[in-house]
Design a protein around this nucleic acid. Sequence first.
DNA 1: CGTGCATTTCCTGGTT
DNA 2: AAACCAGGAAATGCAC
Length: 255
Amino acid sequence: MLDSVAHSTFLPNASFCDPLMSWTDLFSNEEYYPAFEHQTACDSYWTSVHPEYWTKRHVWEWLQFCCDQYKLDANCISFCHFNISGLQLCSMTQEEFIEAAGVCGEYLYFILQNMRSQGYSFFNDPEETKATIKDYAVSSCLKTSGIKSQDCHSHSRTSLQSSHLWEFVRDLLLSPEENCGILEWEDREQGIFRVVKSEALAKMWGQRKRNDRMTYEKLSRALRYYYKTGILERVDRRLVYKFGKNAHGWQEDKL
DNA sequence: CGTGCATTTCCTGGTT
DNA sequence: AAACCAGGAAATGCAC
C-alpha cells in the first residue's frame, strides 16, 4: 500500500496552480489528459476529478501529494483508513480524519474541505490560505524530522488558531516570502534574530490574531514572558532576541 | 461552571 | 523626544 503511494506520480506543480481555474475548467481542460487520449475516469489524475468522484487511487494520489507538498509525516497517517473512495472520503468528519491521521488528519481535512469549495485555486491563493497552509504545517510537528506518530496524535488539537507567538515569529524567520524583511537572522546557528520592522511585525501578528489593536509594545511584552519559560533568551540589544532551549524547529539542521 | 495557559492591555520607570 | 526594554498586575479568550 505504502509502495503504491510512494511510487505513483504527480502532476507537475505548474499544472494545478492556476488560481483562475474552476473545477469545470479543470474537468474540461485537455491539458489534464495530456498523455492518455482514451482515459477512463479511473485512469485520470485526482486533480482532474472532483473529490466526490475520486476513486481509491485518486485518494491515494491526493494523500501522496499532500505528504509531499506539505511535508506531512506519513508515519502519522493510518493508510488503511484511507483505502476508500472519494465519496467516502468526503463524508468523513474532522474527528474521523484526526482519528485516522492525528494532526495530519486535521490538516488533510482542512485541505480537502477547501479543495471541495475552492478547487485548485486553494493551492495558489496568495492571501490567507497560503499563510494558513504554511503556518499549519510548520507550527505543528509536521516538519520536524523523526517525529513519532504518537506525538502527532498527542498534538492533534494543534491548529492555526492556537499557534503561539514564538512559533509565528519562528515561521516568519523560516519563510523568506512571508517575511518581507520584517525579521532577520543575526546569528543563524545560535538562534539570534533581530526585529527589523517592529511595527510591521505587530501588524502581522495582529492580523493573525484578528486584533487590529496589536502594537509592538504589547507584542514585545508577550515576548518578554518567554524569557521565563526558556522559549527565548535575553539579548542585551535593542530589538534582538534569541531562541532558548525550550524553543524548537528553528535550527537549520533540524528542519 | 471552574481552571489554567497564553497572551493582551495598561502602566510606571529606566535606557538608548 | 521617540522608540525600546523590564516587569508587575489585571483582564481576556480559549481549551479542557
